[in-house]
Design a protein around this nucleic acid. Structure first.
Length: 229
DNA sequence: GTCCAGGGCCGTT
DNA sequence: AACGGCCATGGA
């Protein structure tokens, strides 16, 4: 299975996904307004349906809390109420506060300054924050920082096992497998968009076909899959 | 009523 | 290092 072919096949079937930013400003560089919202969304969507996250994001905007300073000034109980629809609101409220506080204290709210650093260093700093693990960190780097990292989630791991890829399906293994292969086939400039779309396409595939109970019969990539459940 | 979402932390082996 | 329990809401 070649990642390049898988990507093109998924892209051909599902089309363009336009995940983040939500307002379709994909082409716009340095879209600082959406950066904060992307970071918030990445935390809120942890093990949570996006439809529920949207309700929480709406509440935050309604209360003018989609803003670094205002979020930090908001009482934690009020914050919990706003993000309640996204579930796990106790821990997520804490995670939002910790993350917002990090950007304020270390970077004075300057997201450009943060994202202009070396990617490995960016990743390390994010992972040091309580509540941000590998997937959330990489989502932030890819969608808010527009830097080329391949995001692995539960769906990608499921795909890894089912196709199967001939590797151990751990986060780091899957990530480097896709990155190694795609870096050869695409220019640096195109990689960001490809990683953004690829991740979204895998989610779409897993939601519609490669589900817990898979629908292999109608799956658009069944020709590439050995499992056929 | 049951299952499951665009995970991560923490305590136990 | 690896694994299981836990966190919580809302739609299918």
């Amino acid at each position: 299975m070649k990642p390049k072919n898988l990507y093109q096949q998924l892209q051909g079937y599902f089309g363009k996904q336009y995940w983040w930013p939500i307002d379709n400003n994909y082409h716009k560089k340095n879209n600082c307004d959406s950066r904060f919202e992307i970071i918030i969304g990445a935390i809120l969507t942890q093990n949570t349906a996006w439809s529920n996250v949207e309700k929480a994001l709406f509440n935050l905007k309604e209360n003018k809390t989609m803003d670094l300073k205002n979020l930090l000034e908001t009482n934690e109980n009020d914050l919990k109420k706003m993000i309640k629809p996204s579930g796990f609101f106790n821990q997520k409220a804490e995670r939002l506060k910790i993350t917002a506080n990090f950007f304020k204290e270390k970077y004075n709210g300057n997201f450009d300054k943060f994202f202009n650093q070396n990617t490995n260093f960016i990743r390390k700093q994010l992972l040091d924050l309580k509540g941000i693990g590998p997937e959330t960190a990489d989502s932030i780097i890819l969608y808010a920082g527009c830097k080329p990292v391949f995001v692995v989630d539960a769906y990608t791991k499921r795909l890894c096992k089912r196709i199967p890829l001939d590797i151990e399906c751990s986060y780091d293994n899957i990530q480097s497998f896709f990155e190694r292969n795609l870096e050869k086939n695409f220019s640096e400039k195109d990689l960001v968009e490809i990683y953004q779309e690829f991740h979204a396409l895998i989610v779409e595939l897993a939601k519609n076909f490669c589900k817990t109970k898979p629908d292999c019969k109608n799956c658009p990539i069944s020709d590439k899959c050995e499992k056929k459940l």
